[in-house]
């Protein structure tokens, strides 16, 4: 089962865990990405995420499908938040259940690494004295 969500409301780890639990799963790996309070020593006030929604959803789905082809995944959930996020809030959750733990770790890492490369979501860091689109410039 693949569960993809792009949400404007706070993400819930418990909900993702519930979605991926499976009787045949011996391991569940969950990655939670949160908003850090600084970038290279500079204090971050908040983050603003925006997305090209239809494509963000289809690209997240592709990642889940590719992961399912590569590893024996029972269930995978990818939930991403958009909008304004305060320090410590959850930006992304990836949960994967597999029969044995190794595959769940690997699939989860693959999913978050690929998400950061392909999914059309952009974050802007807001500092006390300005703002910057993350990774826009080399």
């Amino acid at each position: 089962m693949i569960d993809i969500q792009l949400l404007h409301t706070p993400l819930q780890v418990e909900k993702c865990l519930k979605r991926v639990r499976h009787p045949a799963a011996g391991g569940i790996d969950i990655f939670v990405g949160t908003v850090r309070d600084q970038t290279r020593g500079k204090k971050v006030v908040r983050l603003e995420f925006e997305s090209y929604e239809p494509m963000a959803i289809s690209e997240m789905k592709k990642i889940a499908e590719r992961a399912t082809e590569k590893w024996p995944i029972q269930n995978i959930a990818i939930h991403h938040r958009v909008g304004t996020l305060e320090i410590g809030e959850i930006a992304v959750i990836i949960a994967v259940s597999t029969p044995h733990r190794k595959a769940s770790f690997e699939a989860c890492q693959f999913a978050i690494d690929t998400l950061k490369e392909t999914v059309p979501i952009w974050k802007k860091e807001i500092f006390e004295d300005g703002e910057v689109w993350v990774a826009a410039h080399p």
């Binding site: 978050i112 979501i121 826009a136």
Partner: peptide
């Protein structure tokens, strides 16, 4: 759609 470097996650 213009897709500058993505930075989700």
């Amino acid at each position: 759609v213009l897709i500058p470097p993505v930075s989700g996650g």
